[in-house]
Design a protein around this nucleic acid. Sequence first.
DNA 1: TAGTGAGATGTAAGCGCTTACATTAAATTT
DNA 2: AAATTTAATGTAAGCGCTTACATCTCACTA
Lengths: 342, 342
Amino acid sequence: MTIDDNNMGRTPTLADVAGLAGVSTATVSRCLNSPDRVVERTRKKVEDAVLKLGYAPNFNARALAAKRTNTIGAIIPTMENAIFARGLQSFQEELGCSGVTLLVASSSYRADLEEEQIRTLVSRGADGILLIGLHRDPKIYEFLKRQNVPVVVAWVFDPNAKVPTVGFDNFSAMKALADRVISMGHRRLSTITASPQGNDRASERLRGIYASMMEAGIPKTELSIVEAEYGIDEGGAALEQLLCKTIRPSVVMCGNDVLAVGAIAKAKELGLCVPDDISVTGFDDIEIAKISSPALTTVHVPHRRMGKEAAKMLINLVNAAKNQNSILIETSLVVRASLSSA
Amino acid sequence: MTIDDNNMGRTPTLADVAGLAGVSTATVSRCLNSPDRVVERTRKKVEDAVLKLGYAPNFNARALAAKRTNTIGAIIPTMENAIFARGLQSFQEELGCSGVTLLVASSSYRADLEEEQIRTLVSRGADGILLIGLHRDPKIYEFLKRQNVPVVVAWVFDPNAKVPTVGFDNFSAMKALADRVISMGHRRLSTITASPQGNDRASERLRGIYASMMEAGIPKTELSIVEAEYGIDEGGAALEQLLCKTIRPSVVMCGNDVLAVGAIAKAKELGLCVPDDISVTGFDDIEIAKISSPALTTVHVPHRRMGKEAAKMLINLVNAAKNQNSILIETSLVVRASLSSA
DNA sequence: TAGTGAGATGTAAGCGCTTACATTAAATTT
DNA sequence: AAATTTAATGTAAGCGCTTACATCTCACTA
């Protein structure tokens, strides 16, 4: 049995265990944290006492005394987005292998909230922090540095950043997709994107589209842009806005699969045929991309691998404090039925 | 500026602030926790010192001394499921209104992991805990009670449970759906469900189907059951299994929308027409249900409201410790194209 | 103007744990 | 068997904060 009775009116402490076992608190502490430093017979006594009392260590007291929490914090923009959830899942799994607990917070894509949560995580004693995207007030990085809390940034790759990153090249990934789109004859382009303001993933992807257009000699003005928040309905609404423009685009390149699926649904609702009347592309390649009809052309991102690498990196940083090199996660184009020749 | 320099080699403490401001630590503490108990002039001095040093309180020390964390924990089966993510989002928002922080853990549907995480949350000093589903070892409820940590259970409604619940009646909701299915002439029924073992949501829903069949005089044997984990691909694989059975069902009632969408996709892949060859139903009514083609017949669950109510209840419990009554969240049938007459 | 009491601030004792250092016991060497 | 090393355990000083209680101020009252 792991959970047992004790007949005190309060939750048992280390001292109670020590008393019952007839040893000092230091010995009990050692039993819990480095059992090999305690002789078998003593350890047995202590373990019995722990069970007898249903003792559970007080985390806060431990953290205060040890100045270490075995906890790593992560701040993601939203929990409602499957891609963050999935990356985080493997991040957590990898941390778990090292006995580290994950603390998650979501910032709702708001910089001020994120800053607040970073401070919360630090004051809670997180040994390290995972952040999404590089773009934020430099003061925050300074703060983290001064507090001696290592950081890893995921979802972007930038070997020149002052913090290690593990992610993919948003610019190149989107440019590769745009290259393909343009090579299929599309000229009247459009995109549904998250606000690039303060979101380097979004702005890099946008830059990727422009770069491709430039190479193909298509003027920048041929790209219509609509900003949308994350969500199926938001994608649909954005598509409607796009269709109001005087020149109807032949393709809409969406910032992620969810927006894309929303756009497809809305297009069908409006009696348009995808991809005959309008092509649609996504980004991320989550499950929904495959089962969408038509199936979605998108950029595949190995989120699980990214999460895992980020975890390893952060653990190294926490343990050794030696600098880690950024890791590039390769993406790949997945061409499916939602994209056809113009 | 909220984050500023200090020229010490370590992170500043309350005592540092007190020293700089020329007051005692008690006064600084009061400035931070009950500003109205400190006179304006003093408070100003303290605030200046806080800013000057970039002071951030040490959460663990505070929790240790105050025996309160303003933190509530929640353990959900998985983060990858949109319905939990969404319910949790509004849960968190509501908590935020009261200045309470949320700590999330996911148990991967494993009872042992859940128990471990409950203990972790308690040892971290969570003032209260949100759990999904009632079914778990009674020892856990006893443990929580002894530790004086209030609990609310969500996603199920049971006025007779020993802990307050806020959720819906899984039995009636599924029975209502089955009633409709059967009234449309279906007799060869099937279901794709999470393992009902230790999952009261799943087992109640299954019971709902049986109850409906019984009323209609359909023998229990007419229901084929396949268990599947959560996921689009899992739903597809389960459908294949179902189709291997000698008697092909005319309808597949899925435990949630994600499984249902997976089943639909697989059916289409196999050349079957939904709903002409086979009808499919889901549960939850997440966004994907609307945009699926054909659109999914399902049970609508107001997750956001559920999350909000759960938060309110938990906060009351933490503050007043008076018992709360369970809250029933009403569900409703949403009939869409994926269900047709047999 | 001394007396009163409310309000502001200070003092100091913990909260439950870890850990450097001191002490004691056991194992090894000579 | 005494001397020396090594392993096991104990002692006690914090970790950074909150808060009961003591003290001090000062505007009022009588």
